[in-house]
Each structure stands twice: as C-alpha cells, then as structure tokens.
Design a protein around this nucleic acid. Structure first.
Length: 849
RNA sequence: GCGGGCGUGAUGGAAUGGUAGACAUACCAGACUUAAAAUCUGUUGGGCGUAUGCCCGUGUGGGUUCGACUCCCACCGCCCGCACCA
C-alpha cells in the first residue's frame, strides 16, 4: 500500500504546473475574466501563518474560478518601502535596499512551496525604480490636476535624534530610541486633496454591496459627514485682522446656551496673541507637545487659557462671551473655533466647571424639569425634548428637527450659513525618511516648487547613504540633493522628503494589470482586468488603505490612467481573521515572564519537566513566542496540510486557533483520503447492490452542491466539514469499484482548491484527464439532489416533540392533518383543539396548544 | 475617549427567524495486535430517570414573535482601528 508522502507529491505537481504555465494570466476573448488579489505583504523576511491563511483563501477562489471557466489574474508583489528597513540599517548596519531585497528573496522561496496559483511573471516590489518611477509620474499628473498641494503641518520631532518620528515611535510623549520629550514642529508638507472627494467617497459606499457592512460603516464614520452652521461672533473690541471669530457647530440649536468660545492653540487669533503673551505662548507650547493621536487627544486632560478677549453673543448683542484657547479644539476640523455649550456637551461642562463658567440649559426632557448639574443633558438627536429657550421659538422638537430648523432660521436672519462638514482630513504624504519613493519636485530660489521633467523619471534613491548619523540621509547627500532647476536651469535642490508607504499600496492593484508598462498603467489591460473581483486582507486595513485606494482610483481616472469603470477598484472585499495560538509562559526568579515556543512545549511541560502556564490564545507574535513556522509545518506535514488546516475549524472572517493536534488531524485526514484512493485503484469489486451505488451518487451530488455554494460564499470551513462527511460516506459505502472511483475523483476535485497537490495525485492515479487544476468544476445532477420524502420536526409551543416523514411535495393541509394525528400532538392536545397550527413547507410544523 | 466587531459543550466551531451543538479536537470504550503505534467502530452539553421520557441550556437582564444563537434595547467581558506601523 502506497503511503502519503507530501514532499514527493508537492514538488512533482508544482513542477508540472510550472512547466504547463497554468497560472500565467492571459487576456481571453471567449472567457470571462476574474481578478483575485490578496493584500500584498511587507517583506519582513519570514512568512507567518497569517500569510498562509490569507493567500490560501485567495488561492481557493482563484483555483475555483479557473475551474469554472474564467481567465484568472492572481498576482503577488511586495510592499517594500517603509521604516523597518531603515530601523534594521540603524540597528545592525547594512543597507535598506540589500536588507529588503534579501528579505523578498527569502519570503518568495518560503511562499513557493505553498503551491499557490500565482502568476509570478507579474511580480514586482514597490521599491523597484520601475514601479516607483511610475508612481512619480502619477504624482506629477496629480499635481497638474490640482489633486496635490503643500501646506504647513505638524510632525513629531525628536530633539536628541534630530529626526521626525512616526506616531508609533512616540511612546508616552517620548522618543522610542532617545527617550527625549517629543516636540511638535511645523513643516511644509505635501497633501493629497482627498477631502475634496469626501462626499463622493461616502456616497459611493452604498454601491459596494459586496463589501462587509462593517467596513462600509467604519469608512462612513471615518469620513464623518455632518450638517451644521458656520457663523460669525463679533469681537467686542476688534483687533487688527480680527473683526470676528468664525465658528462651526453641529448643534446650532443650543446657541442660546453658549457660555464661552474656544479656539485651537493654532488658531490665527491664538497665534497672534501668543506673540505678546508669554503665558499663552507657554500654554500653546504645552498643548503642541501633546500626543497628536486621536486616542491621546481624547484621553488628555482638557485645559484652557483665558485670552481676556470677549465676543458678542449674536442673539443677545449686550451679552459677551469670553474667548478661551483650549487644547481640545482642533485647527484641522471646521474653522478651529467653537462655542461651548456646557449644558449639552459633557466636555464643555467639565471645562465650564473647571474654569467656573456659566451653565445655561436650553432644553429639558419632556417629563422632567431637572436642570444640568454634573452630567450634561445629551439625549439622542431623535428624542423629542422641551425647549426653555430657543431663538426661533421652537417649543417641542427632536434634536435633529431643531438643528435643521435653526439652520434655516439662521440663514434667513443672516446670522450664519448652513455647511456640510467632513471629518476626513487631507492625506499628508510627506515623510522625512530615506526608504520611500522620492517626491519628484525641485525647489528653485527663482521658480519656486518645480516638477521634475517626466523624461528624468525615475528620480532614483541614491545607494551611497549611511545611517550612522541621525536624520534623513537624503538631506545630507549633496550630489543627489543638488540639481539644476528643470525650469530655469539654475542651481536648485531636490525635495528630500519621500512618500508615505500608503501611496505605494494605493495603486499596486492597477499596476498588476500591466506590470512592465512604461506608463503607470496600460489602458487596454486596465480596462480588461479591472476591477479586482475579489480582494482579501485584514480588517486592520478597513479604513486607511482601502479609503486611500478608492481615492487613488478616482485620481487615476481623472489623470487618464484608469477607465471610469474602475473608480471603485475592489468589487468585493473579504476581511479574514488572524491565526492565534496559546502562549506558554514561565517566570524567572524576579517574577518576570519568560515565553516559550510551542515546539519546546509537550503536554504543558518543557523538556526539563518544568510546567508552563498556558495563557489563552492570542495573535501569533514574536514577542510572545506563540508562533508556528509555516516552513516547519510544511517540512513535517506538507503544504496541503497547512492549507487544509488554516481553512478548517474557523469561519474565514474569524480568528483561527492553531493547535498541534489540529494540524496532526488535518494530516491524518489527507493521508486517509490518499489511502482510500490508492486502495480503490487496486481493489475494485463489481457490485450488484445498485442501491448503494445510487446512495453514493446522491451523496456525491449533495457534496458537489454544498461545497460549491460554500466556496462561493467564503464558507471554507463549512466546505471542509462537508468534505469530511463525504469522505466518511465513501469509506463506508458498499458501492461498486467504478462508482467509488467516480466519487473519489469528485472528492479530489472538490478538494483541489484547498489541497491542490494531493488532488492532482489522486486525479492522476484514478485516470483523470490532464491536470485537475485545469479540469472543469463538477456539476451536481439536479435529479439526485431531490429526495422524495422529508422529515418534518413537529413542535408543540415551539419545542420539538416529534417528527414526521412525509412526501416532499405534500399539501400543507395534508401535513397539518398528519401532524394533528401524531402521538405527541394528541397527547398534548388531550382531546382539545389547537389554537393555531403553523406549517412551514419542507421545514417544520408548530402546533400552539 | 471615539468608531467597529465578537461572546454557543472540556476545546475550535455549525445552524436563509424553524430539530441548538454539523464537522473537527480532546476524553472514554471497543475491534485488530503477543504488545504498542497506526488504523477502524462507537459514546460524550448539564440535571432527573431502569426506560418511553421530562426539565434546564447559545455572556447577563429585558423585549418582539406561534417560534430567537439569529431581530430590538440595556449591561458585562474580550478583540480591532483611531490618520507618520504596514
């Protein structure tokens, strides 16, 4: 009896696929196209189980679509720019480029044994000059189209390392490497005008029917459309350049409750006052030092500084309101100035209590006169409330109704302007780093900012750089930095900032359609392959990457690089869960945790017999050592086992827990399938038992039908459960050898998207035609799917009390009669009549007693 | 803090508003074996009962419904994102 040896089988079939070039994506006139894409990886150097799961899911779809007559594009590339390469250069020496390309080579060699149906001829890395040169061309086109501009923005500045820090490099307000207090610095930086498209990006979400509802909702909230009122508050005493403060509010209905004004530390008025007021300057400096992450802003203590300036209340000209500078008001949102209404906003109330400002109720609950004390009264906008004081005379209304009416009223009175505002900010793309795509512009003393000429692209990163001195090496590289102005030819300087790596990943999907084109895209190829029919990746990209890509697709259409049909680049999105593992921990003599690799732990003990604490499963991470190396699994069980296991057990959108016993079981199952198949080749009794043949044929049809539907709906775990069941049915069947061989061939075919190597081998040994990879997907015979009778559960008052076998197409009233004649029902009725009988054809009967 | 999600046996999980626990793990029992491994078969949510069976059970509390794991409200716990990580 042959044994299952994955290493032989997998190498053999991978060679066969390669030789036949079966995964080469070709445009075809007579086949529908299908573009399946998994989010491309960062080349860290090692693939992990999360990658295996992500790519296996995409591979199942790609292979399935290939079998159903599609011309499939399934490419792979590398998101290769970014900080880790620079960090490595600083920590261990070497060059980011070498580090990155070495990692790519390593990862590619780790991915190939998985047997993925990838068209490797289209591979590229975002750090290839051929790729980022086209990205620079795109940037220049976007600049010309007015989609990019420069403005001042703050960055995290490390005064010791003399460098800009990413948010993740700022820990508790200190630089991660130096430990120095991080400061804010204002730099002139490049921005994409994504906010111009905010309304469009939000509206178009409705059309993304094959995206998870949660992702659409998250994007909608992120874009954050709100309707509000912009209005001017006159300064009691005008100052040069400042007659009035323009504020924006989403709650104009609470205008009568305004008790103070609050402006951002970076509001022009605050900046003007700062010059003559050291105390305010100190306050603002402190506010600017604050962590700029949204989470930190929200958690930070709310502080204010009284400017001494007052404004007139627009409703009550005799009344004045003090103007405070507050650390929680953002210059980026609205106008950078708000009015505070402590009665109906908790943050304003805390502020008012802290600085002893009045609290003025404007409405109360319908059945309760309680005035605001220490909790602001903030009912849902849909709740009807009673107004104490509304300028337009509203008496009872919902918050939303009052907001709409107040805006109309304020416009009619000339007090303000209705405004739709978005939370979405423009996308800052400048990074003061080396390992990124150079921004292709030149700064000339005479001509200003001048785009590099397209024929000079790519503006390539210089190789001769070092990372032993703090700061951006491009800044101190004279022969690279100094360049003649493309416009006047005078000595000028290149921009030394590079692009955010999100730019790289915002159009790679379009580049895959023509990866070697000497323009960013080739319109014919883009028109043929776009959109991505199925995009697969982690939920952590739900907002930024996916929103930026949607923006880029629009920008690429405007600049003539994508057809109009591709402005929503991802037709369907699937967000897969993580791979988790238990964590094994002991403690050293000081009580600090020590983590242990799963491979070093057997039955909860280390090799020396020490018991480990088992901490419940969490995302695999190097720091917790709860990682399982895919290469190790492939070496001991084969790629098919790894693929099978990451798809089984958990639904794809949820986390899957890696367990040694589960992997072992997956292997045993594949070995069993192999054994059943090999047995069947030799042992083939003729059988007169046609009932067994028919039963097996029915089971086969049911399995084809179920697995097909499960794959189409991403129910891979459910498909696998059905394949387990079908395997058991074949093993126990008394059907003829021919019937069994038929079923096993079908089994191999249905398994082939998940376990392609094993399936090829079985297909081949049972005399299948050509490669199973290229064979047409099996179709279930409708006649075999229908059974003549169904078993209906009988419920009494919603609880199952028996069952009834009836003809599948039996009339409703007949079913009712049979149900009422049922023993359990008669017992429950006890001679009486039922209150109600519900018959759901083919499903259930419920008798209400 | 804000936004989003998840919560079902010992464990991973299944279930278009219609028989809760498919399939798998683990455990236990049996077959084969001198024995073990491998393989095959079977049992297993909790409680009561010899048994036909009955009661309870999908994080907690309420609601809608003939019927709720599924829909609605509140709460608890865990996870993800928060704009310079990729």
């Amino acid at each position: 009896m042959a044994t299952y040896t994955p290493s032989d089988i997998e190498a053999r079939w991978q060679a066969a696929w390669e030789q036949a070039a079966v995964f080469r994506a070709e445009r075809s006139d007579d086949k529908p196209k299908y573009y399946v894409l998994e989010m491309f990886p960062y080349p860290s150097g090692r693939i992990h189980m999360g990658h295996v799961r992500n790519y296996t899911m995409g591979d199942v779809i790609a292979r399935y679509k290939m079998s159903t007559g599609h011309s499939v594009l399934h490419p792979m590339g590398w998101d290769a720019f970014g900080m880790p390469a620079e960090n490595a250069a600083m920590a261990i020496g070497g060059h980011p480029k070498t580090w990155t390309y070495d990692n790519i080579a390593d990862m590619r060699s780790q991915m190939k044994p998985l047997g993925l149906s990838i068209d490797w001829s289209r591979e590229f890395a975002t750090c290839d000059p051929e790729y980022y040169g086209q990205q620079q061309a795109l940037f220049l086109d976007m600049l010309e189209a007015g989609l990019v501009y420069r403005k001042n923005a703050q960055v995290n500045w490390d005064p010791v390392d003399m460098t800009v820090l990413a948010n993740e490099q700022v820990i508790d307000g200190k630089g991660w490497r130096s430990g120095a207090d991080v400061e804010k610095r204002e730099l002139t930086q490049w921005f994409f005008k994504i906010s111009d498209m905010a309304g469009e990006l939000k509206q178009a979400l409705d059309g993304l029917e094959n995206w998870p509802a949660k992702v659409r909702l998250m994007q909608e909230n992120w874009i954050g459309e709100s309707r509000g009122l912009e209005m001017d508050f006159k300064l009691s005493t005008p100052r040069p350049g400042f007659d009035a403060l323009t504020i924006y509010t989403t709650r104009p209905d609470t205008l009568a409750g305004a008790s103070f004004m609050a402006i951002a530390p970076d509001h022009p008025l605050s900046k003007a006052l700062e010059a003559d007021d050291p105390a305010l300057a100190a306050f603002n400096a402190d506010a600017r030092r604050m962590d700029t992450t949204e989470a930190a802003m929200e958690k930070a203590e709310k502080k204010g500084f009284d400017t001494g300036i007052t404004v007139q209340h627009p409703l009550y000209p005799n009344q004045t309101l003090p103007v405070w500078v507050a650390n929680f008001v953002l210059m980026d949102y609205g106008t950078g100035a708000v009015f505070g209404c402590p009665a109906h906003d908790q943050r304003d109330l805390d502020f008012a209590r802290k600085y002893d400002l009045p609290v003025i109720d404007t409405f109360v609950a319908m059945d309760d006169d309680t005035r605001v004390a220490n909790a602001a009264f903030v009912p849902a906008k849909s709740e009807v409330v009673r107004w104490i004081n509304h300028p337009a005379g509203i008496d009872k209304a919902t918050g939303q109704d009052a907001i709409d009416k107040t805006i109309d009223w304020a416009e009619a009175q000339g007090l303000g302007r209705g405004q739709t505002q978005y939370r979405l900010r423009d996308w800052g793309l400048s990074r003061q780093r080396y390992w990124g795509c150079p921004i292709p512009v030149v700064h000339c003393d005479d001509c200003g900012v001048v785009p590099e000429k397209k024929e000079n692209l790519p503006v390539e990163l210089p190789d001769d750089v070092t990372f032993d001195i703090p700061g951006n090496p491009l800044d101190r590289h004279p022969t690279w930095r100094d360049t003649p102005c493309p416009s006047c030819g005078k000595a000028a300087k290149r921009e030394t900032d590079t692009m955010d790596t999100f730019v790289d990943s915002s159009w790679y999907f379009a580049r895959f359609t023509a990866p070697r084109a000497n323009t960013p895209t080739n319109m014919e190829d883009a028109a043929y392959w776009m959109n991505v029919d199925q995009y697969i990746g982690g939920i952590e990209h739900a907002i930024l990457h996916l929103l930026y890509s949607r923006f880029f697709a629009r920008a690429m259409h405007i600049t003539g690089h994508l057809p109009a049909s591709a402005i929503e680049p991802f037709d369907a999105l699937f967000t897969q869960g993580m791979v988790t593992h238990e964590i094994y921990q002991t403690r050293d003599d000081k009580g600090r945790p020590i983590y242990h690799l799963p491979e070093d732990v057997t039955d909860g003990k280390l090799a020396d017999g020490t018991e480990v604490d088992i901490i419940p499963s969490a995302k695999m991470s190097k720091s917790k050592k709860n990682v399982v190396d895919p290469l190790g699994i492939i070496a001991s069980y084969g790629a098919d086992t790894a693929r099978w296991f990451v798809l089984s057990d958990s639904p794809p959108e949820r986390d899957v827990e890696w367990t040694a016993s589960g992997a072992e079981a997956a292997y045993k199952h594949l070995a069993r399938v192999y054994r059943i198949a090999t047995d069947c080749v030799t042992d083939s009794p003729a059988n007169e038992d046609t009932k067994a043949d028919l039963d097996l044929a029915r089971a086969r049809a049911v399995c084809i039908d179920g697995v097909t539907r499960d794959i189409e709906s991403f129910g891979f775990n459910a498909a696998i459960a059905k394949l387990y069941a079908f395997t058991a049915t074949i093993a126990k069947s008394k059907a003829s050898g021919a019937a069994k061989r038929d079923s096993i061939k079908t089994l191999a075919q249905l398994m082939s998207p998940m376990t392609p190597h094993l399936s090829e081998d079985i297909w081949n040994m049972l005399g299948g035609d050509g490669l199973v990879t290229l064979a047409a997907w099996p179709v279930a015979e409708a006649a075999l799917l229908k059974s003549d009778t169904v078993i209906l559960p009988i419920q009494i008052n919603g609880k199952r009390r028996g069952e009834l076998e009836v003809d599948a197409d039996l009339d409703k009233s007949e079913v009712e009669k049979l149900a009422l004649a049922h023993e359990a029902v008669k017992k429950a009725l006890n001679g009486g009549t039922p209150k109600k009988v519900i018959v759901v054809p083919g499903r259930i009967v419920n008798v209400v007693v």
